[in-house]
Amino acid sequence: MSEALKFHFEVDGKDFTSAGHASVMVKKNLRQLGLPPEKIRQVSIAMYEGEINMVIHAGGGVADVSVTQDYVEIVLKDNGPGIKDIEQAMQEGFSTATENIRSLGFGAGMGLPNMKRYSDFMEIDSTVGVGTTITMRVNI
């Protein structure tokens, strides 16, 4: 694999039911590429949590995934409200999700920590009122 393989997805922010579709597609593609199951799971979970976050908090966005020889990179970009205090947002249990989202099984304040837990590199670039871009890498 000399050049990176790239995948692009639009994440629909209005439909909670279909959230996770892009992650499922990435998982299928990585399986076809023959990556180790443990690495595929890391990528899938990190991306799935990010995708759910984009739907819950930002009204959707775009996801770009690149597969290189050394790592899988996931870039999630939205034009949502931005994250006011990233350090606080990274704490397990901290969440700004509504009661409605909690009743759907998310908003436990584990999304961002889980993204960090499953990636080898994570960077959050967020501006309040402008949006958030999260870059994650899983080494392979």
Binding site: G20, S23, K27, Y48, E49, I52, G105, A108, P113, N114
Partner: peptide, 30 residues
């Protein structure tokens, strides 16, 4: 809470839940 489930790692596991929506199946799949 699906994010609590996603914090766990182990192969070949079973999930017990009282939550009913598509994200339960997606979580299990991931």
């Amino acid at each position: 809470m699906m994010s609590d489930v996603l914090a766990y790692v182990k192969d070949q596991a079973v999930l017990l839940t009282g939550l009913v929506n598509s994200q339960v199946i997606r979580t299990a799949e991931m």
